[in-house]
């Protein structure tokens, strides 16, 4: 009895320590975003500022760079990417999971293989392609390379395999075509998995720095991570207070999205993992 209590206690301690480790950078970020420059570099760390500087920092973040514009850009880009990824992943995953065709195994092997390729590898060919298509410095340049997510295909395929074949046979008898089956039968049953994938897709693409940095140079198209980099100025030095304020504003939608979708997220991930 005591042993078990002790075990539980220990387990929670370890988990708490882990959670604290993960949360610390965020706490420091929020804390710094509230402080004046003098306090930021003070030798001892305090959680809350002695002299509140939040309004100045956040005003600076929104005025020195068009942070609101960046946030809107981030939203446009992530939403478009997810819509495109869902529109491609669902039919492809259905074809891989439920249709019988020559080369299906090979196609699935290619999907798995593509999972292993780091995104930096195709960056140069993609850049050249975008240049040839005269798409550099457009939303399309940021969105197009991410429209097909092999991870999304993989995740949805694993989920679709658990859908009974009879359901699809019934839909075919009822007169649904293959695309109608994807949208009307498979999609509703796969919503938790799709929500999980949506969460991941949103987090990745919202935080994506590397490709947008290459694809766009104009300020009006920049996504939040690029915008934050503005505060990191080699000549004037880094302006930490507004930088942290901008970072907080940028991170907030992610935290919010995850909190809202966390149940569906966990459900979706466990459902695809454990059959």
């Amino acid at each position: 009895m005591v042993d078990r209590l002790l075990g539980t206690l220990l387990r929670h301690l370890v988990l708490l320590a882990g959670a604290a480790l993960m949360l610390t950078p965020f706490v420091i970020m929020v804390s710094l975003s509230l402080k004046p420059p003098g306090e930021i570099f003070a030798p001892e760390f305090r959680l809350l500022p002695e002299q509140w500087h939040a309004v100045e920092n956040y005003r600076e973040a929104f005025t020195r760079v068009p942070l609101a514009r960046f946030l809107i850009n981030g939203l446009i880009v992530t939403a478009s990417i997810f819509a495109a990824q869902a529109a491609t992943a669902l039919p492809i995953a259905y074809a891989l999971a439920k249709l019988r065709w020559r080369g299906r195994q090979a196609a699935f092997a290619l999907v798995l293989l593509a999972l292993l390729i780091p995104p930096q590898v195709p960056a140069i060919p993609l850049y050249i392609a975008m240049w040839k298509l005269d798409l550099l410095n457009t939303y399309a340049a940021i969105i197009l390379p991410s429209t097909i997510s092999v991870f999304g295909i993989f995740l949805m395929r694993q989920f679709f395999r658990t859908v009974p074949d009879d359901l699809i046979a019934a839909a075919r008898m009822d007169g649904l075509g293959e695309f109608a089956i994807v949208w009307r039968i498979m999609l509703p049953t796969a919503l938790p998995a799709l929500a999980a994938f949506g969460c991941l897709s949103f987090i990745w693409n919202w935080n994506e720095f590397f490709w947008p940095l290459i694809a766009v140079q104009e300020e009006r198209l920049m996504t939040p991570p690029l915008g934050i980099a503005f505060f990191n100025n080699a000549e004037a030095g880094t302006n930490w207070g507004p930088l942290m304020a901008a970072a907080t504003v940028t991170t907030a939608p992610l935290a919010l999205a995850f909190l809202l979708a966390s149940r569906a997220f966990v459900r979706g991930v466990t459902m695809t993992g454990v059959k």
Binding site: D166, A170, R172, M173, T189
Partner: peptide, 19 residues
């Protein structure tokens, strides 16, 4: 194709659309 055959099927698992 199945939909053009004008047949209806009842499955062992019923295969009702769950949503």
């Amino acid at each position: 194709r199945p939909k053009a055959r004008d047949l209806a099927m009842v499955f062992q698992s019923y295969a009702l659309y769950p949503y």
